[in-house]
Amino acid sequence: MTEPAISIRNLTKVYPVPFRRERVVAVRDLTLNVEPGQVYGLLGPNGSGKSTTMKIVLGLVPPTSGETQIFGRDSSLVESHEEVGFLPENPYFYKYLTGEETLRFYGKLCGMRGQALKDRSRDLLKLVGLENAADRRLGGYSKGMLQRIGLAQALIQEPRLLVLDEPTAGVDPAGSREIRDLILDFKSRGITILLCSHLLGQVQEICDRVGILHKGSLVREGRLEELISVENQTQLILENASPELLAKIEAEVARGGAGLVEKSKPQTTLERYFLEVTK
């Protein structure tokens, strides 16, 4: 059996409130696994414990009890970070570094150097579409560009797991779509992704599996299509169907004992329309 990319067992995190007796339970007895190759969406309202969970997985915060592992290694060990790339929410990297210098800096932190690091930085800049901005300082980057350099920095040491916190927050629709395409691309290369997001539409488009956190507890978990498909209904979309044909189908439906729930013209999404207009 392959070991899970992330394994969280009975994780609890309690924060003391300064100068008071009460305590805040950020995560309560959480257990979940993320299998290799999956895109896992961790959802939940603000303050539900998503960020805390993520920080514990990355070893930035120690758990009160329970344990987390990354590919079988305890995530409180520094070595386990070799397999993880992380993009925090609204990151600001060093403004005075250029795109390429940023990638080299993070590469050096992972023990890379020389020509291999140079090549890797160039490849990643190309991958995220920033090769023309490689020599510009990050202070002049747009929000979308910062997120893309953030993705590149997360990937610098070729980790098998990516942890992304709100990767498209505050990015315009075109940039957001590019980031989404990049994530799907990473997935097709076999990289496991843990994604925290509020943008449910986007989560629905890219995640295989989702978990919903509420007040620190996992309230629902499972494969996306199992969770949201309506089992007893089927959707049919026709093109160039004449009114006569439609009438015939409706009659046939009624004769077969089924009920027609809705008949409408499919609409393009506002996103697709917006992208079309601003192309």
Binding site: F86, E89, C110
Partner: peptide, 10 residues
């Protein structure tokens, strides 16, 4: 949050 990105590396 630059610190997170640095400490998330080994």
């Amino acid at each position: 949050r630059t610190l997170y990105t640095i400490l998330a590396k080994p």
